[in-house]
């Protein structure tokens, strides 16, 4: 029996065609660049972290007793979960007045406006308009810094507490909220406030750092030379996410 030679060349026609499907490499199935896609996946994981925080808040709130009675008769006690609008009812410069949720609504608006200026910066980037990108990035940094300053004031107020404090059963009085004692309710209420708004505030701070770097790079013409402003888009995605988280914190921590 003769055998075919092993060195025989295979005719080109019988070679398998190179695979060229969406997922065979060499193209972008989601029509988004690698960097943008990875930013989306990072934000997805970050959303898991914040969802874990807010879910923990829900669990801990249900685990504690709720206040029963008319809201106007509400007094602070470590025995039950406080009504949020009774805790967050102060406004800078308006000492001693009961203005529930106004300050946090203002903070929400500031962050939403920073999101709009961010999306305007991205839009200016699409038009390769360096001056507009610079202008809108600066506005975003300004609004972001305003937000974080407001948060610093709110934390300061929450930690300092009221003038009269809360009388405990053993005769002592506690002032303000900390990780181990809380004038406004169960200790976990303060802990969750510090962790949730603190982790969010840390995100805002990181965002401001990224935006500042982005502003410097824009000013230096780095992106213009590169031919696109995709970096502004990626940082924009992050910034909108931070705004999105605040929308959920506003509802689940302050409103409900």
């Amino acid at each position: 029996m003769s055998t075919t030679t092993t060195t025989q060349t295979i005719p080109a026609a019988t070679l398998p065609e190179p695979r060229s499907g969406s997922w065979d490499g060499g193209n972008e199935p989601f029509k988004a660049s690698y960097g943008k896609l990875m930013m989306w996946f990072f934000l997805l994981t970050d959303a898991f972290t914040f969802a874990a925080f807010l879910t923990t808040y829900g669990l801990m709130r249900q685990r504690h007793l709720a206040y029963v009675g008319a809201p106007k008769d509400f007094t602070f006690s470590t025995a039950y979960w406080p009504i949020p609008e009774k805790v967050f009812n102060s406004f800078p410069g308006l000492h001693g007045m009961d203005i529930p949720l106004a300050f946090v609504a203002l903070m929400t608006m500031i962050l939403i406006f920073s999101s709009v200026t961010m999306v305007l910066a991205v839009e200016a980037g699409h038009r390769m308009d360096k001056n507009d990108v610079q202008k809108w990035l600066l506005w975003t940094i300004l609004f972001g810094s305003m937000f974080i300053s407001c948060q610093a004031w709110e934390w300061g107020h929450f930690i300092t507490g009221s003038e009269h404090g809360l009388k405990m059963a053993d005769g002592s009085t506690i002032f303000g909220a900390a990780l181990t004692q809380n004038e406004y309710g169960p200790v976990l209420f303060a802990d969750l406030f510090f962790f949730i708004t603190g982790f969010h505030g840390f995100h805002v701070f990181s965002g401001i750092c990224l935006l500042t770097w982005c502003f410097i790079a824009t000013t230096n013409g780095t992106f213009h030379k590169r031919g696109h402003y995709e970096m502004v888009e990626k940082i924009g995605l992050y910034w909108h996410f931070v705004d999105l988280v605040w929308v959920f914190v506003f509802t689940f921590f302050y409103l409900i």
Partner: peptide
């Protein structure tokens, strides 16, 4: 890719909030 994992988190939220009531 983004929405399906987020939708599953609603399940987590409902399950753990219910669990919180039981613990209470």
């Amino acid at each position: 890719t983004i929405l399906i994992p987020m939708a599953l988190l609603i399940w987590l939220l409902v399950a753990l909030v219910t669990e919180g009531s039981y613990i209470g």
